[in-house]
């Protein structure tokens, strides 16, 4: 017989999305039929939703973003430039070989 503690232990995994379909359904039906447990479940849900607040949110200023974009454009330019140079080098050495 599965009791309250059994389902209480499953709650974190339920919110993490790591329960099997069957375990999920069992937990949901226990929540649906047990009012006191449903209250506890809601509490845990709020706790889980709050987790997002404990992850830092960093402001990416327009200035920093513009600077970063400039640097990444430069990376792309340089890599394409290197690529083109390599093609020319390969072609020249092929021509030399043939001559």
């Amino acid at each position: 017989m599965m009791n309250r503690d059994h389902f209480a232990r499953k709650i974190p995994a339920y919110f993490d999305g790591t329960l099997t379909e069957r375990e999920r359904t069992e937990l949901e039906s226990f929540v649906g039929t047990n009012r006191e447990f449903a209250e506890y479940f809601k509490l845990k849900q709020a706790e889980y939703n709050n987790l997002k607040n404990s992850i830092p949110h960093f402001q990416f200023s327009t200035e920093a973003q513009t600077q970063m974009e400039g640097e990444l454009k430069e990376v792309i330019d340089n890599l394409f430039h290197t690529e083109s140079s390599n093609v020319i080098e390969k072609f020249s050495s092929w021509v030399k070989e043939k001559l």
């Binding site: 993490d16 709050n50 987790l51």
Partner: peptide, 12 residues
Amino acid sequence: VHNSRFILTGGL
């Protein structure tokens, strides 16, 4: 995932 949840909810 479990470890981070445990520590972060403790912090909250």
